[in-house]
Nucleic acid binder design. Structure first.
Lengths: 226, 226
DNA sequence: GTCTATAATGAGATAGAC
DNA sequence: GTCTATCTCATTATAGAC
């Protein structure tokens, strides 16, 4: 995926071990700072301070601020996209797919990474929410997210008549928006619901919400075939 | 609503007509610039240029950059919140409410304003998407959006058993996220769906998606009572 | 690969004339 | 209310020593 970053310079030699550690520390720091401040409010200085390195090193390892942002997003999008497609393949090998099953393959790897990877993956999720809400990152989203998204829309669309395809695509975008809302707006759900939230229930409820929604939207245009 | 803005200064005299026009022009310009750049990337200078006034006038009429942002959001949130609640009251007077009916009262006034008000309301919608995705505007969201949101969650929750309330609240947050996605990510739906989108169908599909989703999520916790 | 020092730019805000 | 001019500050990025 990194090869898709415009003007990505090809490195001539393998970086040293120390350089790799420094680089990883800078990427992680950038991820956290971008997550809490957004792209514009984040400064290279903040990132350098968070990584406990000098400012010039951030430019050295990450390139310009914008290149750094692309790298931060692409790094995890790669891993996550592969995990999602793998989950889909595995599920498919065990029997016919359903809408909830497909959504579980999309949401599941994400929440598993959040569970085991902790704050870094939550930070990534917040960044994805920023990227999705802002036209300015259209190209980034297209390169990093579209291949996986297209695959999932195709699997979903296969469950309905051809004329329902655009409804299914809309439903999938709503589902992604809902998933991101669960990450960024959990406090809001708790405030409106007058109760703290059981984390374990959340994924199930999200799947139930989106599966029913996609089915209802698709049924308006064509009948389910499986 | 403006009274809720911290440190809002009470004016001593009614502003002149010219001042009102200038002020409105500045607010509209700020709305457009904030919508396309977000808060941090927008500059007072950009806003002044967009409004065709001098930079100092923006500070004079809008206060600090952050105060200006609050004002821009609060101005429309007020109008929209009232329209939504009014739609709900009217509907309620004509018979028992349903989930789709409640959602239509929430979504409808918004899309009507977008239709008649055009670009300024679309700009507002994009700003709301930014506000919703960013923790930093929690207080702004709580003051401007929560009263209306609470009212709608209550009406929805009244259709289900008490223990379903937190599921209904989650579903409502998902619904709002989906509504914003329709504004900010329509291009994405069209790209994934391989077809341009019929604008008139969109509201219906959004309602169908969210109503089915809320019902499914709520049914996991309690049975519908009406 | 890492660091110090600094160049070059653009930001928000205000003082004070009209 | 409006405008000009400017203050003060923080930013990104790089040059060059080690």
């Amino acid at each position: 995926m990194l090869k898709d970053i415009p003007q990505e310079k090809q490195r001539q030699r393998a970086p040293s071990k120390r350089a790799l550690e420094t680089r990883a520390r800078i990427m992680d720091a950038a991820e956290r700072v971008f997550a809490r401040s957004g792209f514009d409010a984040a400064s290279i200085r903040d990132i350098a301070a968070e990584a406990e390195v000098q400012g010039a090193l951030v430019n050295h390892h990450g390139g310009s601020k914008e290149e750094l942002f692309w790298r931060v997003v692409a790094r995890r999008a790669d891993v996550l996209g592969d995990a999602r497609v793998a989950a889909l393949e595995t599920r498919k090998a065990h029997g016919p797919l359903t809408v909830p099953a497909i959504l579980e393959c999309f949401f599941g790897p994400f929440f598993e990474h959040v569970d085991v990877g902790g704050p870094q993956w939550v930070a990534y999720a917040r960044i994805v929410a920023f990227v999705s809400a802002d036209d300015r990152w259209k190209d980034l989203a297209a390169i990093c997210f579209d291949p996986t998204a297209n695959r999932f829309v195709e699997e979903l669309a296969a469950l309905y008549a051809p004329q329902a395809r655009s409804s299914v695509a809309s439903g999938f975008v709503y589902a992604v928006a809902s998933m991101l809302a669960l990450i960024t707006s959990q406090w809001r759900m708790e405030a409106l619901g007058d109760a703290p939230i059981n984390a374990a229930d959340h994924l199930d409820k999200l799947v139930a919400f989106c599966a029913a929604g996609i089915d209802a939207a698709a049924q308006r245009e064509g009948s389910q075939t499986t």
